[in-house]
């Protein structure tokens, strides 16, 4: 079997193992609290008999590891149980909200990834000159700004003062794609700005790292223009570090999405997660935590695989 495939298979296996460990961690972590779900549901109306009945009904008398496997199997089958606070089916709520969140995240990625790479290239091209310094100063300021600050400034400016865009991003099922995009612009731009700053700084560092190599000097000495040196020689070699940078910044995207959704009252996973953490609704928190973790691990896996596949040394073994 080619070495590339072995490496890719190894990474996938490792990712699965990591996800399994995280699921144990999340389940165990939320099980350590004193009292249990039955007490939480019944509250003050609990008597020893109806507590016992409810526990039997919910399967809480089973040992912890049995409940863990039941929970995990349910997860795989798309059955996330029901929320404590409302009794509603979690899968249904998550399905609708996950779509919204992915739409928002995709919007932000489409906006920020090409822009970050472009700005990174420009900063390297004009290294230590005015343009580079300007971009560096702006990104330093941007990574210091909390997401809610950027969000509220944008709302105040474009939503209230100029009244170009809606101030609250309410998404309905029957919205056309145009309406949906209009509603997503402000939260999408906020999220992009946060991610963009981090991503651009790292892209600049990654390209600078490659640019110091000897073959770049050769390319310059043989008379290639600055942009074609970057485009033909530096960029292909910088591809794998850039992919890495992009996925590393997905962490900011995932964290950012939680805060930005709350700022814009956007009906996504982040808002749902935070609401139920405040209500101490353990089944929802477990499900959301695992979904966020799974998305993050998956993104890292994709980055690993892309950097393996884009490495010519692995594709043409000696």
């Amino acid at each position: 079997m080619p070495r590339v495939l072995v490496l890719v298979a190894q990474r996938i296996a490792l990712g699965c193992l990591l996800l399994l460990t995280i699921s144990i961690l999340i389940f165990a972590g939320t099980e350590i609290l004193p009292g249990d779900v039955a007490e939480a549901i019944l509250g003050r109306t609990a008597t020893p008999e109806n507590l016992e009945n409810l526990r039997r009904e919910l399967g809480l008398n089973e040992p912890t590891y049995v409940r863990y496997f039941q929970w995990l199997c349910g997860m795989f089958q798309g059955d996330l149980g029901s929320a404590l606070s409302s009794g509603a089916d979690i899968s249904e709520a998550v399905g609708y909200r996950l779509k919204n969140t992915l739409f928002l995240a995709a919007f932000a990625s489409v906006l920020s990834i090409p822009l970050a790479i472009l700005l990174g290239l420009i900063a390297v091209r004009y290294k230590n000159r005015f343009f580079d310094k300007l971009i560096s100063a702006l990104t330093l300021a941007a990574i210091s700004l909390p997401e809610f600050f950027i969000g509220y400034v944008l709302i105040l400016l474009f939503g209230v003062q100029l009244a170009w865009l809606p101030t609250v991003s309410i998404v309905g099922e029957d919205m056309s794609i145009g309406q949906r995009l209009t509603v997503t612009i402000l939260p999408g731009v906020t999220l992009s700005l946060v991610v963009l700053a981090h991503m651009m700084r790292m892209t600049r560092a990654a390209i600078l790292n490659v640019i110091e190599a000897a073959y770049i000097e050769t390319a310059e000495l043989k008379g290639l223009g600055k942009f074609s040196v970057i485009y033909k020689h530096a960029l292909p070699n910088a591809l794998s570090p850039i992919v890495n940078v992009v996925t590393l910044n997905m962490a900011y995207l995932i964290v950012g999405v939680v805060v930005v959704e709350v700022v814009f009252v956007y009906p996504g996973m982040g808002q749902y997660f935070v609401d139920h953490v405040a209500k101490r609704d353990v089944p929802v928190v477990q499900a959301c935590g695992l979904i966020f973790a799974a998305i993050y691990i998956l993104l890292n896996l994709v980055a690993d695989i892309i950097s393996i596949l884009s490495n010519p040394r692995l594709a043409h073994p000696k």
């Binding site: 995280i22 972590g29 609290l33 995932i254 935070v274 101490r280 993050y296 890292n300």
Partner: peptide
Amino acid sequence: MSIPTLIFALVVLSVM
């Protein structure tokens, strides 16, 4: 470190 800090913190704070 394999999942973002805020997500981890939210899970933990829901039961503490």
